[in-house]
Amino acid sequence: MPNLGRKSKVLIVIVLALALMLIGALFFPVPQPGIELSANYGGGVGPEPFFQLGPIYFTNTLIASFMSILVLAGLFYFGTRKMKLVPTGLQNLVEAIVETLLNFFEGVAGKENARRFLPVIATIFLYVVTNAWLGLLPIFNAIGWGEPGTSGNLLSSIAGSVFPEYDGFIVKTALFRPANTDINVPLMLALVSFLAVEYWGVTAIGARHYAAKFFRYGQLIGALGLLVRGRVKSALSGIFYGGIDVFVGGLELLSEFVRIISFTFRLFGNMTAGEVLLLMMAFLVPWLIAVPFYGLEALLGAIQALIFAGLTLVFATLAVTPHEQEPE
């Protein structure tokens, strides 16, 4: 390698990148991705599932889910197979993962609650992040069923004589599709999070106390009693504040359910958008342009997992905190 200045090095890299993109555009065009929100559940909306096992449809997203499960289970199985007091190799990694999560949980929820929350919330985190990162593998969305055909792209529509159209096999139903882009995955996680939070809340402070957070009729009923006894003035203010209390309780109850929807669509939207972004970037200019977006998506996957787990953790901590100690 000849001794070159900084400027010429940068120039060489730029020229190489442009050349790669040009070669990609000239000789390896990419077909327009067929974007569908639904996975292949059939039923008139999308392609039929690959096969059915009783009530379970094996779709491309479920296969991806099982891939994630396999990866995680394999990692932790081999990491904890021969546990030693002084860790080595893979044990270091898996211990670091669990310990980092546990420390994070302890920081938010306290030592005792963290141990209780760990299995469910850590599983949510690991599932989301593994789904997201596995979805970046090149086998996703590229292998599957389809048919030969032609597909134009941006460059060929601008200068058709220079840039060729895609002509070849076009995947209609991918064998693997990132699991997080199937709305049933975020919805399932949101429901798990919701159920777990309610369960923890009820078992930690009792069903009566927990329900009292949402059904705050005490003051209103007391005020009505005053009205019956004829103390009109104090009864009226009691009814006013009691009414506000009931309304706030209703809002609290509603927000518990709204969380399911916000959880679902936050994850689904982010992941689907990321997937579409990657496909479109690869489609617009083949090779190289999509690379930085892969880095972005890797980061986003981790962030979304962290948000999902973190919010569940915060809601769980709020649910198990008795009302008197609830921070204002």
Partner: peptide, 21 residues
């Protein structure tokens, strides 16, 4: 793409993962 079969499959998948982990 909300589908009760998909949801069921995902619940089962999550349950398996939770158990394994």
């Amino acid at each position: 793409g909300i589908n009760w079969r998909g949801l069921l499959g995902q619940f089962i998948a999550f349950g398996i993962l939770l158990g394994l982990l």
